[in-house]
């Protein structure tokens, strides 16, 4: 089963006037899609809308053609996400947190144990597996959050600034896992400030500014930061 998430003319405006306006976006199976923009551009709001954390004022969000309020629990079991804070409780060990997360994503107890063991190895968390998460550094907590989002082999992955606080080794491990998931047919959406990083792994790069999709960048294109700022500046001047 593959996941196709689509947003059609989605608008969500907050009382402050910020938000996202008339956004059309589609995530395609097997693709890593990067969402880039300045702080406050609307990246996190858009991701929260995609996960049901906020409901749109207008527009439609569908997963494999099914409207959000009709998505079955089985379908949600194949979604993995990390928005802002990792799902990691300070009083639990890394392994316990991963088992908890897998169980909440519908895995049976035995499956949750084996999935946590696999991702602990894959993301090089073995050294910390029996330590309480509250004792870990910010970067390692982020790694636990990513492990929790990816361990159940989801086919729809939504990660907000996933490389935040990660050391270079963590960035490389994450890149490997995301490429592997996409190769297996998963739809992946990542937001990032690191244009070089997304340029390395993304199949598509969408630029958001002032809550609107304003264009795309070509992965691997030279001077990608210059191209990004040019797009944003042109849009801001026109607004």
């Amino acid at each position: 089963m593959q996941a196709s998430l689509a947003l059609k003319a989605v608008t969500k405006i907050f009382p402050s006037g910020d938000g996202v306006r008339e956004v059309d976006l589609a995530l395609t199976p097997g693709e890593i899609h990067a969402l880039v923009g300045l702080n406050g551009a609307g990246k996190s709001t858009l991701m929260r809308l995609m996960l049901g954390m906020k409901s749109p004022d207008s527009g439609l969000i569908t997963l494999n053609g099914v409207a959000f309020d009709k998505i079955s629990p089985d379908r949600w079991a194949r979604v993995g996400h990390l928005i802002e804070y990792p799902l990691a409780y300070a009083e639990l060990t890394v392994r316990q947190n991963l088992i908890l997360s897998a169980r909440l994503r519908g895995s049976a107890p035995d499956r949750a144990k084996s999935a946590s063991a696999t991702i602990i190895e894959k993301l090089n968390l073995g050294k910390f597996a029996e330590r309480r998460t509250g004792e870990l550094s910010l970067g390692n907590r982020q790694r636990v959050g990513l492990a929790s989002a990816l361990q159940h082999e989801p086919d729809l992955i939504i990660l907000d600034e996933p490389t935040n606080a990660l050391d270079p080794a963590g960035v490389i491990l994450l890149r490997t896992v995301l490429l592997e998931r996409a190769a297996n047919g998963a739809s992946v959406l990542v937001s990032s400030h690191h244009l070089d990083e997304v340029s390395r792994i993304a199949d598509r790069i969408t630029v958001i500014n002032g809550g609107r999709i304003i264009g795309a960048l070509q992965p691997g294109q030279p001077e990608i930061e210059r191209a990004f700022f040019s797009l944003v500046q042109t849009d801001s001047e026109a607004a």
Binding site: R48, L51, G52, M53, P73, D74, W76, A77, V79, H81, L82, I83, E84, Y85, P86, L87, A88, Y89, A90, S101, L104, R105, G106, G145, S148, I158
Partner: peptide
Amino acid sequence: ADGTITGLFGLPVP
């Protein structure tokens, strides 16, 4: 307070 609430969305357990 811990920010874990964001991880409790998008799950099969409502």
